[in-house]
Every structure is written in C-alpha cells, then in structure tokens.
C-alpha cells in the first residue's frame, strides 16, 4: 500500500494543541477529505499515521512531517489538495511525496533545530551575548531538572546542545539552537531555563519555533542536505 510523507506547518492557535490531539485532528481530516487511511487490525483499530517527532505544547513548527498509509493509490498532489481543504486553520500542508517502505519516520530523527525569539536582556548587545553564550557552552556540564513519571531528575544537557547562536533582529533576541532528539534529547525550554540562570531572561517570554528535523547524516527527512533547504 502506498505510503505518503506530508510536510506541514503547525502554527497559530494550533500550536497549543497537544500531540495526541494533533494525531486525531489529522485522522479526522483524512476522513473528511475522503482519503481512506489504512487501519491496524485487531480489537482497537488504529490508523496508519506516524509522526516524525511530537511538538511540545506552545511550540510552532514550520517543517513537520508525518507518514500516512492509504488503502489506494493516489497522486501526491491530490493528497495534498484534499488535506489542504480539510484541515483546521493552523495545520497547513506544504508538500506530499510518496516514500518507499523503510524505517519508521520517528527513528530517523536525530537532531532538531529551533528558533526562540524574545526580548533582549537589559544591558546586553550582540557582542556581549555571543560572549555569554560562548562561556555558557564552554562548561562541561549544564544541569537541568526534568520532571518524569518517577519524579524530578537531574540531567546534563550539554552533550545534546550541538549549537547555540544569538543574534539581535528587529530589536528582538533570536536564539537558534540545534539539539539532540530521541534518546538523550534536549528541549528548547531547558536551554532557555539554563540560560536564564546566567542572563536576565525569562523563558516564558520566548516564542519558540521548530525550524527543522534532521537525521544522523544531517539529511532533512524530506531528502536533501540539512543546510540546503
């Protein structure tokens, strides 16, 4: 059965929707669109709909991916148009292509890029911020607390921060980060929180956008080099 990969944006009000609810929204959209999703067999049939990486509540994504398996052959452009007219505002299909059977989409994702935009810390210019970030990254350990089912855990996030750069644009501080995904992942809010301990910035003041998902060999899930898109 054909497997389609959809690249979409999740933005605006839809960024406040949890991953589980996004899954259901896509399932319903395919039904409205008359696309016949394949369902798993068994007691409680689940749609064959898999996502690259859940987006945290509150974070937008401009290149998100999911794979869907349909009962029938369709032209990718047809699938794209059908979804376009049936998704709620804030879930915006960008492109669809057919992909060969292969490893699960989620297992491909190795690193993620984020852009966090917020107020410039009082008394800092671009140069001073760069220096602060360099000092921040030169530490061997950056420890944050993470809440899990077993309670609070302390975790060193430094190995999972591949890059962190600051710029000032339109009077706003723009932090771009490349972070580890999957096992040993680092979340953008953890980086902001750790930064907030040395800079006068409040993580809640930052709008966060995920800009890219990449595989281990620095390929975008879409194909093509990570730097080329």
């Amino acid at each position: 059965m054909p497997r389609f990969r959809l690249c979409y944006r999740q933005e605006g009000r839809a960024r406040y929707v949890s991953h589980l609810d996004i899954v259901r929204a896509f399932e319903r959209a395919t039904r409205r669109a008359g696309l016949r999703l394949l369902y798993s067999q068994g007691f409680n049939p689940r749609p064959k709909l898999t996502f690259a990486a859940p987006l945290a509540v509150g974070v937008s994504g401009c290149r998100e991916y999911l794979d869907l398996e349909l009962e029938e052959e369709r032209e990718p452009v047809e699938v794209l148009e059908a979804l376009r007219s049936n998704l709620p505002d804030g879930l915006v299909p960008v492109a669809v292509r057919v992909v060969a059977d292969g490893p699960a989409l989620m297992s491909l994702v190795d690193r993620t890029r984020y852009l966090a935009v917020g107020p410039v810390p009082e008394g800092f210019d671009a140069r001073a911020l760069q220096a602060e970030l360099a000092a921040f990254l030169s530490r061997g350990e950056i420890v944050v607390e993470r809440r899990s089912a077993k309670g609070l855990k302390r975790k060193n996030i430094r190995p999972g921060i591949y890059s962190l750069r600051a710029g000032i644009n339109g009077g706003k501080l723009c932090l771009s980060m490349e972070l580890k995904a999957g096992a040993g992942n680092v979340r953008p809010d953890e980086v902001l929180k750790a930064l907030g301990e040395r800079l006068p910035l409040v993580p809640d003041d930052f709008a966060v956008l995920r800009t890219a998902l990449m595989s281990r060999d620095n390929q975008l899930l879409w194909g093509g080099k990570g730097d080329g898109e």
């Binding site: 009000r13 839809a14 406040y16 949890s18 509540v57 509150g58 809640d204 003041d205 930052f206 709008a207």
Partner: peptide, 25 residues
Amino acid sequence: MTDLERILTRVERPARYVGGELNTI
C-alpha cells in the same frame, strides 16, 4: 509575546482557551 501567550505557556491544556477548532465561525 502577548500577556495571553505568556499565560498559555503556564497552564494545563491551553487548547481549552484559544479556539481555532474545525468549523469555528
């Protein structure tokens, strides 16, 4: 960030408050 956006990062299930669902007018 507006006041609302800032608040929404701090509450459970912010989708309760923002709207934007399918078939909204």
